[in-house]
């Protein structure tokens, strides 16, 4: 862990530069909060922190630049930094997080689990289907019913269904 790598990691230079630009942007934003109004102003602390970020990144950048550039960048980038599995999985997560709000928790989570388990284990759709159903039910019972966390409802009128089930049981008694 401790020893410094000899060559730059693929993409490291770009990552450091992005962070540096980001820090400078945050520094500028922090200045915008209250300028140099005083030691107790709301912006004083954020300004100090973003300045520290920027300075430490300059130090990091200097070390990164001193090391030789990596060989075969594109190929190693694809293998070490962004393998296909990670990219596809991230894509699934992105779609999931966007669908969560309008589709609702249950359908979007179910589809996410189904798709990602099927993808990661390379097929075996039935097993994925069973596992997804089981885990959704467990999560729903623990969070929604026991801990009363109102998960995003989306398209399914959950409260109406729960009320209907309750009245169904009430009528049965």
């Amino acid at each position: 862990m401790q020893e410094q790598p000899t060559a730059r990691r693929p993409g490291e230079l770009v990552f450091t530069l992005i962070l540096l630009v980001g820090s400078l942007f945050l520094l500028w934003q922090a200045y915008g909060i209250s300028g140099f109004a005083g030691l107790s102003s709301a912006g004083a602390f954020p300004m100090a922190m973003s300045a520290i970020m920027a300075v430490s990144l300059v130090v990091i950048l200097a070390t990164v630049l001193r090391r030789p550039a990596p060989a075969a960048v594109l190929e190693r980038l694809r293998k070490d930094i962004l393998p296909a599995t990670v990219v596809v999985f991230c894509g699934l997560i992105l779609v999931y997080s966007l669908a969560l709000d309008w589709l609702g928790f249950i359908p979007s989570s179910f589809l996410f689990l189904l798709a990602s388990i099927t993808f990661l284990q390379g097929g075996r759709f039935k097993r994925a289907l069973g596992l997804s159903l089981l885990s959704i039910i467990c999560v729903y019972v623990v969070f929604r019913l026991v801990f009363q966390v109102v998960l995003p409802e989306g398209l399914i009128p959950e409260r109406a269904i729960i009320a209907w089930i309750q009245s169904f049981f009430a009528a049965g008694n």
Binding site: P157, R159, A160, I162, A163, W164
Partner: peptide, 22 residues
């Protein structure tokens, strides 16, 4: 029965509340 009760709960019937409140 399910469809009926769903329809009823959307129709803002007088017998409020038909489900749990938040």
């Amino acid at each position: 029965a399910f469809a009926l009760s769903m329809a009823a709960s959307f129709a803002m019937a007088n017998d409020f509340p038909k489900q749990d409140l938040q």
